[in-house]
């Protein structure tokens, strides 16, 4: 067993967002960093919004926290009033050393999880999250790779075997792991299509040069099409492991 992986669950607490069904069960083995945040327009001082909304926001946040605790997770609770949601998310991820961020969507209690793997970068953290969250549950993990044109089948196999090794070292039974490789023009569409048969998706952050994370394109787009929860594993601060 590994330590409980820290997972950030951001909630726009005053805009009617809540914790969708199935999510507490999904994160039962996680250390949940529950971030309630409220984005305030520039005209408004953040303290001004706090004066008016703090009580209501904290009330809702407490309820959410107990949902996670009842499912078995440990919870850290934060409430932030901000002009810039992305900056707040980045800061909290950093302060709590979050391995992954959840894009919350409703799901059934998890039995099948799709893990999209792209390359060797960040695989260590990906494995840590998957093993930490699902290793002790009765969950089937499917490693899914969309092959690129210049990759040979051998390379892919070696790479996926490496990931399986990591997962088993972290305590995921080998019998629960499956691998699947496909070729597709649009990897994202392929992941979204495949994901329909699964309860949740775990994926890495996209290339930093392309987008910012969490609400950056791939994870967000995926979450929109997939309609289920997506765990976005965060890049390591300085270097990849």
């Amino acid at each position: 067993m590994t330590d409980r992986p820290s997972v950030l669950v951001p909630v726009r607490v005053l805009e009617g967002e809540s914790i969708p069904e199935g999510v507490p069960e999904l994160l039962a083995n996680a250390h949940v960093v529950l971030l309630g945040y409220h984005v305030v327009p520039d005209q408004t001082a953040t303290g001004q919004a706090r004066m008016q909304f703090e009580e209501r926001a904290n009330g809702r946040l407490e309820k959410f926290a107990s949902l996670f605790e009842d499912a078995g997770a440990t919870v850290d609770q934060r409430l932030v009033f901000t002009h810039d949601g992305q900056k707040t998310l980045d800061r909290i991820i950093d302060e709590h050393d979050c391995l992954a961020v959840l894009v919350p969507n409703a799901t059934a209690p998890p039995t099948d999880v799709l893990v999209a793997v792209r390359g060797t970068i960040g695989v260590g953290r990906l494995a840590e999250v998957v093993a930490g969250l699902f290793g002790a549950m009765d969950v089937d993990v499917t490693l899914y790779h969309v092959a690129e044109a210049d990759e040979s089948m051998d390379d892919i196999e070696t790479f996926l075997d490496g990931v399986v090794d990591r997962l088993t070292t972290f305590g995921v039974p080998e019998s629960a792991i499956e691998t699947r490789v496909e070729t597709a023009e649009k990897p994202l569409a392929a992941i979204a299509a495949t994901a329909e048969d699964f309860d949740a998706v775990v994926m890495g952050e996209s290339d930093p040069s392309l987008t910012t994370f969490v609400f950056g394109m791939p994870a967000d787009q995926l979450a929109e099409r997939f309609l289920g929860p997506v765990l976005v594993v965060q890049r390591e601060e300085s270097e990849s492991s």
Partner: peptide, 16 residues
């Protein structure tokens, strides 16, 4: 440097 913290856990983000 990055926030003002009230009570136990309410924070005001610094963004400028």
């Amino acid at each position: 440097d990055e926030a003002i913290v009230h009570d136990e856990e309410t924070e005001l983000e610094r963004t400028i």
